[in-house]
Design a protein around this nucleic acid. Structure first.
Length: 509
RNA sequence: CGGGGUGUAGCGCAGUCCGGUUAGCGCACCUGGUUUGGGACCAGGGGGUCGAAGGUUCGAAUCCUUUCACCCCGACCA
C-alpha cells in the first residue's frame, strides 16, 4: 500500500450534526443505541408475536456466515449433523430432576391439535375435543429427546462415540426480551455427544469450548475468557459447565457460548447403557454444547460505534462496496467498466463485493447507508479517479479515507481486510484489558462496579451462599472460574474466608 | 405478576388540560424538473376507522366508563 497517499479525513462531527437525530449514541443511552442499531441496520425487528423477532435478510446473512464457519469447524472435529423434533413429550422432561427444575418455568406447552370455528361466528377457537393425551413441550433444549433416542442407538462400546450436532430453533418463554440477546424463540446449534469414558467426554466438552473460543476470536474478532461456571450458574443437569465470556463496550459481560460435561446424568435418566470391552454394562458419558443467535448481539456490541454497525470482514455479508460518482451517462459507463474489472479481481480472491450503481440514491446517501450497515471497505470512483488511475478507499473501522493506485488493487484490498479484522480484535482486546481489574476489598469491588464496570478478578470463598449474597447486593455474578487459573492464597472479597484462586465477576447480560 | 409510561399516516411526533372549520408537522413514499466526490433542491401529489367498544353532547382525537396492545423499570434467564 506504499502507493497510497493519505487524504483529509472527513470531519464526522459535521456529519453527526447533519444527520437526522434518529439514533442514540453509546454515551447517551447504551441500550437504546443497541436497539436502534439492530433495527436501523436492518438486522432484525420485533414481530407480531411478543418476544419473538424477525431476522431480516441482512442480519440473517451474517448468521449464515456464522453457521457456515462453525459448521465447518464442527465437521473438522468429527461431528455430523442430524435433526430431532421440535416437540418433546412432557414425561421426558421429568426424568432428569435438575433439568426440569431449570427449564420448567419457561416452557411453551402444546395441549391441543385442532381448531374449529367459534360458535358465535367470531373467528376460531381451540377444539376442546382435540386435547392431546400427553402434552408436548416446545423444546427449550433437546437433551431429553436426544437421550431418549440415543438409548436405541447404543448397545456396545463399538457404537461410541456419537458426535451429533443439530441446527435448530428453541423456545424459552422469557419475561423480558431484547433483539438477539434474549428472545422467546432463538436459533442455535446444539451438539450432543455420547462417550464410553468420563475422560473422553470431558475432553470433548473442553475441545468444543476451544472451538468456540477460536471462532469468537478469529472470526468475530471478539476476545473471550475461558472458564467453568460456578454451581449457581451451571446448566441444569450438567456436572460441569464450561463457557466463553466476552466483555461488551458498556462494561457488561456476555456469555457467548457454553459447553457442558453432563456426566452420566442423562444416561441414567434415560437408561442408556452399553457393554464395555470388558463385557460390563455401563452408563454412557455425555456432553452438550451450544451457541445461539445471541452471538449476533455480541457482534454488534463489541465493535460498533456511534456511526452504526462495524462488522469484522470475515463475517460481513458484503466485504467491499463500490460506489460510482458521475454526472453523465458516459462517465457512468466508463466508471462501471473499471468497477467491473475491480469486482472480478476481488471476487477471484474470494472477496464479496457489491457494485451499487443505483441512480435512485446519491453517493453521499450510499456512503452513509453502507457505513451504517458496517460494510468494512468502501471504494468510491469518480471521473477524477478515472483520470488518475486511482480509487478512494474508506475503511469502516477507523473511518479513514485514502486514495489508492488501481494497480494490484485486489491484493491491497485483501490485505486491508485482513488488517481490519486484526485491528478490530486488537481494539476489543485492549478494551477488555483496560476493563479488567483486580479487587482485593469489598469497597474496591463495589467501586469498580459503580464506576467503570468490566471484569473483576477477585477471591471468593467457593460457597453458593456468598455468590448469592454478592449478586443480591451488587447484581454482579461469577462469570467464570478461569481454566488453569493461577493458584494464589487470598481472602474472599465478601466473607474474608480463605481462597486459593481468583474468579471473574461482572454484571452480565 | 408489581410500579411507571405510551397508543393520532410506513416511521417519529404536535394537538387532548379548556370539545367547535376539511386533524396537522418532520422524515419516508409518488410525479416532473434541476442535481450527483459525505444523507440534494424546487414544485406538485397520495396516504388517517385518532388502539378498540360503549356513553355524554347539537357536535368528541379531546370529557366519562370499560377494554386491548405495546414500551420502560423490577423478580427469572443462553
Amino acid at each position: 500500500m506504499q502507493e497510497s497517499k493519505p487524504v483529509k479525513i472527513y470531519n464526522y462531527h459535521t456529519i453527526k450534526e447533519k444527520m437526522a437525530k434518529d439514533f442514540a449514541t453509546r454515551d447517551e443511552n447504551y441500550s437504546q443505541w443497541y436497539n436502534d442499531l439492530v433495527i436501523k441496520a436492518d438486522l432484525a425487528e420485533n414481530s407480531a408475536v411478543r418476544g419473538c423477532m424477525v431476522i431480516k435478510p441482512y442480519g440473517y446473512a451474517i448468521w449464515e456466515k456464522v453457521q457456515a464457519q462453525l459448521d465447518k469447524m464442527f465437521k473438522e472435529t468429527g461431528h455430523v449433523n442430524a435433526y430431532f423434533p421440535l416437540f418433546i413429550p412432557k414425561s421426558f422432561f421429568s426424568k432428569e430432576a435438575s433439568h426440569v427444575e431449570g427449564f420448567a418455568k419457561e416452557c411453551a406447552v402444546v395441549t391441543h391439535y385442532r381448531l374449529k370455528n367459534s360458535p358465535d361466528g367470531k373467528g376460531v377457537i381451540v377444539d376442546p375435543d382435540a386435547k392431546l393425551e400427553e402434552e408436548l413441550i416446545v423444546r427449550p433444549t433437546s437433551e431429553t429427546i436426544i437421550w431418549d433416542t440415543y438409548r436405541n442407538w447404543i448397545r456396545s462400546y463399538r457404537d461410541l462415540p456419537i458426535l451429533v450436532n443439530q441446527w435448530a430453533n428453541v423456545v424459552r418463554w422469557e419475561m423480558r426480551t431484547r433483539l438477539f440477546l434474549r428472545t422467546a424463540e432463538f436459533l442455535w446449534q446444539e451438539g450432543h455427544t455420547a462417550h464410553a469414558t468420563e475422560k473422553e467426554a470431558i475432553e470433548e466438552a473442553e475441545k468444543m469450548l476451544h472451538v468456540y473460543a477460536e471462532f469468537a476470536e478469529s472470526f468475530m474478532a471478539i476476545p473471550v475468557l475461558k472458564g467453568v461456571k460456578s454451581p449457581n450458574e451451571r446448566f441444569a443437569g450438567a456436572v460441569e459447565t464450561y463457557c466463553i465470556e466476552a466483555l461488551m463496550q458498556d462494561g457488561k459481560a456476555l456469555q457467548a457460548g457454553t459447553s457442558h460435561f453432563l456426566g452420566q446424568n442423562f444416561a441414567k435418566a434415560f437408561e442408556v447403557q452399553f457393554l464395555s470391552r470388558e463385557n460390563k454394562l455401563e452408563y454412557v458419558w455425555a456432553t452438550s454444547w451450544g451457541v445461539s443467535t445471541r452471538l449476533m448481539g455480541a457482534l454488534v456490541m463489541s465493535h460498533s460505534d456511534d456511526n452504526g454497525l462495524v462488522l469484522p470482514p470475515k463475517l460481513a455479508p458484503i466485504q467491499v462496496v463500490i460506489i460510482p460518482i458521475y454526472k453523465t451517462d458516459e462517465q457512468l459507463a466508463a466508471i462501471s467498466e473499471k468497477a467491473h474489472e475491480i469486482m472480478a479481481a476481488l471476487k477471484a480472491k474470494g472477496i464479496s463485493v457489491k457494485y451499487d450503481d443505483r441512480d435512485t440514491y446519491k453517493p453521499g446517501w450510499k456512503f452513509n447507508e453502507y457505513e451504517f450497515k458496517g460494510v468494512p471497505v468502501r471504494l468510491a470512483m469518480g471521473p477524477r479517479d478515472l483520470e488518475n488511475g486511482t480509487v478512494e478507499v474508506a475503511r469502516r473501522d477507523t473511518l479513514e479515507k485514502n486514495v489508492f493506485q488501481l494497480q494490484d488493487i485486489d491484493t491491497k484490498i485483501e490485505h486491508l481486510l485482513d488488517n481490519i479484522q486484526e485491528n478490530l480484535f486488537q481494539k476489543a482486546l485492549s478494551f477488555r484489558e483496560r476493563m479488567t481489574f483486580n479487587a482485593d476489598s469489598w469497597e474496591e469491588f463495589k467501586n469498580i462496579l459503580d464506576t467503570t464496570g468490566g471484569f473483576i478478578s477477585a477471591h471468593w470463598d467457593g460457597t453458593p451462599e456468598t455468590e448469592q449474597k454478592i449478586k443480591e447486593e451488587t447484581k454482579a455474578t461469577i462469570r467464570l472460574i478461569p481454566i488453569n487459573g493461577k493458584q494464589e492464597e487470598g481472602k474472599c472479597i465478601y466473607t474474608g474466608k480463605p481462597s486459593q484462586q481468583r474468579v471473574i465477576f461482572a454484571r452480565a447480560y
